[in-house]
Nucleic acid binder design. Structure first.
Lengths: 137, 137
DNA sequence: AGGTTATAGGCGTATATACCCGTAATTGAG
DNA sequence: CTCAATTACGGGTATATACGCCTATAACCT
């Protein structure tokens, strides 16, 4: 049974997600939510489609994932002024605070990895992942 | 914004899943189902918990994922003879046939990656993923 | 201006994933 | 042998992910 590249990535992704989710749980965020909020902060006020494109996520997936964040008061979804079709995403103060509060836990998870996988190999992993994505996308 | 190891893995996993799912779609299997069937074949008749452990999957996740396969007649779930609590998983002939039929598509997807990421780097990726998992699990 | 085309999203549906809690069956201590 | 502890699993709930179809809005062409 030859190793399936996809299976290896999926397994590693599950493991990483579980590891980070455990670390972030006290802060009340999943790693998906944390990453999404941080990316939304970096993007600023942005439409759903544009955010999805930036995050390499399906549009409808991003739309659905906004649900829990919106219910938690972390983001607001408002109709675009110039284009009535667009739904603009705004990270609320509560969302920014949640990210700030979660950052120590996230850093701790990051450090747990960095402490056991030397910087060169970690950088190489990121590089190979990026290369893989450019091939498979 | 420092790169989150988890986010990078999740992104790559999504990309890979989409790539392989597209390749496998004509065969009527998702890559998750394909990988699961192949692992079940390798394991032989096995209980749900034991299979989940072998696949590094949550037990309840594996149990749920059996649903579509069972509905499609790819696997049978039978009560264990020696232990009435166990549910033994058996890949049916239909399941084996589905795997056989999907293998060309899978190989094509594998080859599309191998053709653009040289063997050394691909092997390194697998090695780094394994290392990551051993750290984060 | 009006009709056609294109774009932005929502909703239905389905799979994938994992947590918690409850139940059934086995194991083990005495 | 009995009963407590353990183990195996199902179901409820929730998030994450994506496809297809539909609607609303905008843009474009004549």
């Amino acid at each position: 049974m030859l190793p399936c590249h996809c299976l290896a990535l999926r397994r590693a992704s599950r493991t990483a997600t579980s590891f980070y989710d455990t670390a972030l749980a006290p802060a009340g965020l999943t790693v998906a939510q944390f990453a999404m909020l941080r990316q939304l902060q970096a993007l600023g006020r942005v439409s759903i489609s544009r955010a999805a494109q930036a995050m390499q996520l399906d549009r409808t997936t991003l739309g659905r994932n906004l649900g829990p964040l919106e219910r938690g008061g972390m983001v607001r979804i408002v109709v675009g002024e110039t284009d009535g079709r667009q739904r603009m995403i705004e990270v609320s103060d509560r969302g920014e605070q949640a990210v700030r509060q979660a950052i120590p836990a996230w850093k701790s998870a990051q450090a747990a990895i960095s402490g056991r996988l030397n910087p060169g190999r970690l950088a190489l992993l990121h590089e190979l992942l990026a290369e893989f994505e450019s091939i498979a996308s």
